Computed example of a mutant assay.
Amino acid sequence: MSEDRMAALETRLRRLEDERDIARMMASYGPLVDGGDADGVAALWTSDGVYDIDELFLAGREQIGGMVRSAAHQGWIRQGCAHVVGPPHITVDGDEAVAVCHSLMVVHEEGRYVVRRATANHWRLRRADSGSGTGSGWQVVKRTNRILDGRRESPALLAGGVRGEPAEG
């Protein structure tokens, strides 16, 4: 096998491994947040990472972990909830990546499960150094969530992310 062909295969393998690692990291959010693992959730973000949710703006791991520890979130866990992150579309560019997906928050109410929120998710990620503690090598720099309620901003997040564009703001 020629050196050029070997290098091309190594590049393709690295991209596939990066996409797999990012998808696994994103998929870990739901089990961690529903399990009340505040430190595990916070570790998904860079130390100065941002989680921009419609009703919340969280800057840094302390605030992100605090959201999981909050009385409101702990109430969702006691009531029964599931944060379901859909399959992502991932664009890797070296040590940076953009991923988009849908997510649902499903809650247990009066003996049945109800979708409380359907959301567009835009993730900007960075390859972390090996000491990150996430195990994936990737961390969230900024996650922007917008409820899919008819506003133009929400589907624009999804479409832009498929094109690899950063979220506005």
Rank of each mutant, 00 (worst) to 15 (best):
R14G: 10
R14A: 12
R15L: 04
R15V: 02
L16C: 04
L16Y: 12
E17Y: 00
E17A: 02
E17I: 01
D18A: 10
D18P: 00
D18Y: 00
I22G: 00
A23E: 05
R24D: 15
R24L: 14
R24V: 07
M26Y: 01
A27P: 08
S28V: 02
P31V: 05
P31D: 14
L32Q: 05
V33G: 01
V33D: 03
D34T: 10
D34K: 01
D34H: 09
G35F: 11
G36M: 07
G36P: 03
D37A: 07
A38V: 09
D39T: 10
G40F: 08
V41T: 01
W45Q: 02
T46N: 07
T46Y: 07
T46P: 02
T46G: 12
S47T: 10
S47D: 12
G49H: 12
G49T: 14
G49V: 13
V50Y: 08
Y51I: 06
Y51P: 00
Y51R: 04
D52S: 13
D52A: 10
D52G: 01
I53R: 03
E55N: 07
E55C: 04
L58E: 05
A59Q: 12
G60R: 15
R61D: 14
E62G: 10
Q63D: 14
Q63S: 14
Q63I: 12
Q63T: 10
G65P: 04
G66L: 04
M67A: 09
M67T: 05
R69G: 13
A72Y: 12
H73G: 04
Q74L: 08
Q74F: 12
G75D: 13
G75F: 10
W76K: 08
I77C: 05
R78S: 08
R78Y: 03
R78T: 06
G80N: 13
C81L: 09
A82I: 04
A82H: 10
A82Y: 02
V85W: 09
V85D: 00
G86M: 06
G86Q: 12
G86N: 05
G86C: 04
P87R: 06
P87H: 03
P88H: 08
H89L: 11
I90L: 13
I90V: 15
T91A: 06
T91D: 01
V92W: 00
V92Y: 06
D95Y: 04
E96L: 15
V98L: 03
A99L: 07
A99T: 11
A99Q: 01
V100F: 11
V100E: 00
C101N: 11
H102W: 08
H102I: 11
H102A: 09
L104T: 01
L104N: 00
V106T: 01
V106D: 01
V106Q: 05
V106A: 09
V107W: 07
H108I: 01
H108D: 06
E110A: 03
G111V: 03
G111R: 00
R112I: 02
Y113W: 14
Y113H: 10
V114A: 06
V115I: 14
A118M: 15
T119S: 08
A120T: 14
N121G: 11
W123K: 09
R124N: 11
L125K: 00
R126D: 09
R126Q: 08
R126Y: 12
R127S: 03
A128S: 14
A128R: 06
